[in-house]
């Protein structure tokens, strides 16, 4: 699988990470190297093998529907970059 600068730009947009123009070629190359490594997977015979998302066969526990949390807004917002009137502030959201 070859990967090009435009692919990296697309990924960076999806991941919301601004790329550095000076190192973009280097970034592209190193990601290409990693993908070459993971491409070794393609040789594996996985016909009929069920994908495995978790290391154990455990199943999910469910919790009772109870309100256990209390208001800690002050503590939480003390570490926030910008708040006002109890709200987190961000640059204007345009739908």
């Amino acid at each position: 699988m070859t990967i090009e600068r435009t692919d990296i730009e697309k990924l960076a947009e999806l991941a919301r990470i601004e790329l550095n123009e000076a190192t973009i070629a280097e970034t592209t190359q190193s990601i290409a190297d990693v993908l070459a490594l993971v491409d070794q997977l393609q040789a594996a015979d996985t016909e009929g093998v069920e994908p495995m998302a978790h290391p154990t066969d455990a199943v999910q526990r469910l919790r009772a529907d109870e309100v256990t949390e209390t208001n800690h807004r002050e503590a939480f917002q003390a570490i926030a970059p910008a708040t006002e009137a109890g709200l987190y502030l961000v640059p204007k959201v345009i739908d």
């Binding site: 594996a44 996985t46 994908p51 495995m52």
Partner: peptide
């Protein structure tokens, strides 16, 4: 594919 290989490794 990686998840399938994960099962083989296990």
């Amino acid at each position: 594919k990686a998840q399938q290989v994960r099962r083989l490794i296990k």
